[in-house]
């Protein structure tokens, strides 16, 4: 797994961004940018090149699902791996995310091992 890649972590709660950053740092990632909702995440994505998006679902302004759909319909961004990390665990949520092209899905609460395992699957 290449840990030198540029990662965008999107969550409206600073707590979750902090926990995810801690886990990513433990795994060796150093190039991490944060955004607090889908709108600011999309702005970041248009400004900078990212290699991985890790996003919450339920956020104000633009949800993670809307962000995923925008990313997948943008020619410059559509190939970026997208990991959804969310408390939305009902079957319909997972189906919607898969249909929108999510790369993988982690339900909160999660362990560091669960995040590591999903990243291995996405990044190889």
């Amino acid at each position: 797994m290449d840990t030198s890649i540029k990662v965008l972590v999107v969550d409206d709660f600073a707590t979750m961004r902090r926990i995810l950053k801690n886990i990513l740092k433990q795994l060796g990632f150093t190039n991490i940018t944060e955004a607090d909702d889908g709108t600011s995440a999309f702005e970041e994505l248009k400004k900078n090149n990212f290699d991985l998006i890790i996003s919450d679902w339920n956020m104000p302004k633009m949800t993670g699902l809307e962000l995923l759909k925008r990313v997948r319909s943008d020619d410059a961004l559509k190939e970026i791996p997208f990991l959804m990390v969310t408390a939305e665990a009902q079957k319909q949520n997972v189906i919607e995310a898969v249909q929108a092209g999510v790369s993988n899905y982690v339900v909160k609460p999660f362990t560091a091992e669960a995040i590591s395992e999903k990243l291995q699957k996405i990044l190889g």
Partner: peptide
């Protein structure tokens, strides 16, 4: 807030 969110989701 995040704990509330996670407990509600689960």
């Amino acid at each position: 807030g995040e704990l509330t969110n996670m407990i509600s989701g689960q």
